[in-house]
Design a protein around this nucleic acid. Sequence first.
DNA 1: TCAAAAATAATCAAAATCAATCAAATTTTA
DNA 2: TAAAATTTGATTGATTTTGATTATTTTTGA
Lengths: 249, 249
Amino acid sequence: MLTPKRHQLIEQELSKKQMVTIQDLVDITGASESTIRRDLSELEKQSRLIRVHGGASIKNAGKQELSVPEKSSKNITEKKAIAAYATDLVEDYDCIYLDAGTTTFEMIPFLTNKNITVVTNGITHLDALSQFGIPTYLVGGLVKYNTSALIGQFARMSLLNYRFDKCFLGVNGIHAEYAYTTPDPEEAAIKQTALELSQKSFILADSSKLDQVSFTKIADLKAATIIINQTDHQMLNAINKKTNVKVVS
Amino acid sequence: MLTPKRHQLIEQELSKKQMVTIQDLVDITGASESTIRRDLSELEKQSRLIRVHGGASIKNAGKQELSVPEKSSKNITEKKAIAAYATDLVEDYDCIYLDAGTTTFEMIPFLTNKNITVVTNGITHLDALSQFGIPTYLVGGLVKYNTSALIGQFARMSLLNYRFDKCFLGVNGIHAEYAYTTPDPEEAAIKQTALELSQKSFILADSSKLDQVSFTKIADLKAATIIINQTDHQMLNAINKKTNVKVVS
DNA sequence: TCAAAAATAATCAAAATCAATCAAATTTTA
DNA sequence: TAAAATTTGATTGATTTTGATTATTTTTGA
């Protein structure tokens, strides 16, 4: 196996688990301990990870959190759990739509080695999708700089060229009565279109989105399955009556 | 098998898999190890890939550095001069197409304060365009990771939604007989389309591109005006008879 | 604290890969 | 068509990478 390929595998495993043992990496790469040790030393020198006794860990002080600022650092563990659950739903040869946003971003490390095609409107997703070697189509359209998403009528038209087995969307609010909402009407239109083009649709949300209402309605609750982390929020019951809810613990 | 065909296969395989071993390429091309090694050396010299022990890898495999193109080359001053000249041609309220690539990238700082709209297929351009506050539309399509450009039929279709006052393109070869050429047919198709959609078209090139021939022809020389830096290359005369050439000193 | 266990760094020989070389094959030129 | 130039593939010795071994350091837990 080529050295950079091994390095890539190591980094992939790290972004999934934040920690790996040497033995894990030996199993994954099929290389010897010596080689893995040399790899870790090298990668640490490039400050792409931090070595610890017995393995390595990610650099927690500001990695891709730079691109999508403080928002992502907050509920990161919850988001990872939700993302991992969502990724389990993806099957080989699926063509999926990955919405722009931090939760959907966390899905990417788990998508590796699945033989899939991704369509996205999230510019910040591209680096990671590239790193994990996932064939990717980007939606065209107006570049919305503050969120690095593609929006507008051109984005919508561009999206209409595709059909999806599954789509994974983020939202700003989930409410029993007002359903799924988001602040920007342009973004809402894109999400709507993605929903229409997908066989199955999933909304990824941490529990802080419950009971929130934002400016624009995206769709009725029943238009998608909600994937959310464990919570005792009372609204969940009301929502559960209107659509499928998968609770990740 | 012809050398350009082999190079083409190598690049194809690389964009598919991000990394290839020499043995892979021997199997694919039927050529010997020696020949593949020579090919890889050559392609690395053209900075189309990076050689690694045992094979080759695409340019930014695994690294997140998509924002700032490498400033290592000494051509950077020339490129800046060419870019500055090109930007002078842009007028207020123009809608322009900015091709992916390093020379066109250098135009962006000069575009600030012009009241224009930019359409581009270059993902690396986005950060800079954002920084200088230029309204930007991104073409959709397949993400070509090693060059961070958008290509393929979807990119072409997406492009057809627009009309341009001017377009600014990069090429890999300019030749009196073989005209404008570039290695990737998919990229060539995009450039072609941009040319067709533009009132006026400009090719930005430093003199190292003169007399070079790459795999795919983009268009006849007369399809665009060439903006090139000062050089005593003899081929310039032959080219000058066939199209407009602006020499930047 | 101290000794056993685990992990590491250092070392070295084997394996894999590489660059250099050269003759044969191919293409271009005269 | 023959000569010259280029490309190719095989061979060689040099270099790099690798995995096993061993001595050293760190961690563990009694």
